[in-house]
Simulated scan of single mutants.
Amino acid sequence: MARTTPLDPPSDVPLDPPEADERPLYWRIASLLLGELRAGTIPPGERLPGERDLARHFQVSRETVRQALELLRRDGLVATDRRGSHATLPGRPVEDPVSLTFPVGARPADPCAVDRATVTWEEPPPEHARALGLAPHRPTLVHRYRSATPDGRSLRTAVTSFSAVALAEVAELARYRDRADGNTPAQLRRAYDWMRRAGLALHHRDAITQVGDASSVRVTRRVHDQYARPLEITDLVVHAEQDALVYEFTLPAAG
């Protein structure tokens, strides 16, 4: 492993001068990382990978990465808080998804439907515990959603279990533990937005299966982050004589 030089760069020297190859290793790594940030590999405001991942990516030591990040911080190109380091280069922010609502299958605001959502701190269903990598009998935050039309012809029920990673990374979710009594209303429609603001890239997989007769379907959504860590799993059951689940996907234009 290449040795690093103590971090003491003169403040008036540009980060990526022509003779960059003659600079200390941490300086060259800072320049490489800056190039990736400028290329948009990591959008402005998004969290950078951890020091271990960056060290593996650039094939250097974590100390070298730490020094490179400190150099970028001194130039105002990276900011660090308790949730990690974030790119602060000017640029177009990541847009909020307009179609990924929580939980899966939640209706838009409908004055005719009666909605109820609560949270509890309890042992999740066994299949949820396995999907989230939770130890047997370990409690977690469980969200329950129920939406029914007055005529009773359409009923949607959803149960969501959150992983230990989601509760550790997303402060807004963790705060619900103290009021997870199963009675207090808890609309978590912004749950995915909270996850993204915590620096988590969301990957979701929805599986649709028929339940019993043709009028009922089950949708199982599994969400994990950019490190393949599970974040949540939701089981939605739709009982309807005449109803439809509509999925919308928006892809930004290139460039």
Rank of each mutant, 00 (worst) to 15 (best):
L7A: 04
D8R: 15
P10H: 06
S11Q: 15
D12N: 10
D12Q: 10
V13G: 11
L15A: 12
L15K: 03
L15R: 06
D16W: 12
D16Y: 11
P17F: 13
E19Y: 09
E19D: 15
E19A: 14
E22C: 10
R23L: 15
P24S: 10
P24Y: 07
P24R: 04
L25V: 11
L25M: 07
L25P: 01
W27G: 03
R28K: 08
I29M: 13
I29K: 02
A30V: 05
S31C: 12
L32D: 14
L32I: 09
L33I: 06
L33V: 08
R38N: 14
A39K: 03
A39G: 08
G40K: 10
I42T: 11
I42M: 09
P43L: 13
P43M: 09
G45R: 07
E46D: 10
L48R: 00
L48M: 05
P49Q: 12
G50A: 14
G50H: 08
E51L: 14
R52F: 08
D53L: 14
L54C: 06
A55F: 02
R56Y: 06
R56A: 14
Q59S: 12
E63H: 15
T64F: 13
V65W: 00
R66A: 15
R66D: 14
R66P: 03
R66C: 11
Q67G: 05
Q67M: 12
Q67H: 15
L69K: 02
L69D: 02
L69C: 13
L69Q: 04
L71Y: 00
D75K: 10
G76T: 13
G76I: 14
L77H: 09
L77T: 05
V78P: 00
V78K: 01
T80Q: 15
R83Y: 15
R83M: 15
S85T: 05
H86L: 10
H86K: 06
H86T: 07
A87Q: 02
A87M: 04
L89N: 01
R92E: 10
P93R: 13
P93V: 11
V94D: 07
E95A: 12
E95V: 09
E95P: 04
D96V: 06
D96P: 04
S99M: 02
S99F: 06
T101A: 08
F102D: 01
P103G: 04
P103V: 03
V104N: 02
V104R: 01
A106V: 04
R107Y: 04
R107S: 11
A109G: 08
A109S: 08
A109Q: 07
P111G: 10
C112W: 08
A113R: 06
R116E: 13
R116Y: 08
A117H: 02
A117F: 02
T118L: 05
V119T: 02
T120L: 10
T120R: 09
T120C: 06
W121C: 05
E122I: 05
E123Y: 04
E123I: 13
E123H: 07
P126I: 09
H128D: 01
A129C: 11
A129I: 02
A129Q: 01
A129K: 00
R130T: 14
A131Q: 05
A131I: 06
L132P: 00
L132H: 01
G133H: 09
L134M: 08
L134V: 03
A135L: 15
P136Y: 07
P136W: 06
P136H: 07
H137N: 12
P139T: 08
T140P: 00
L141M: 04
L141C: 02
V142G: 00
V142H: 00
H143D: 03
H143T: 03
R144C: 05
R144L: 08
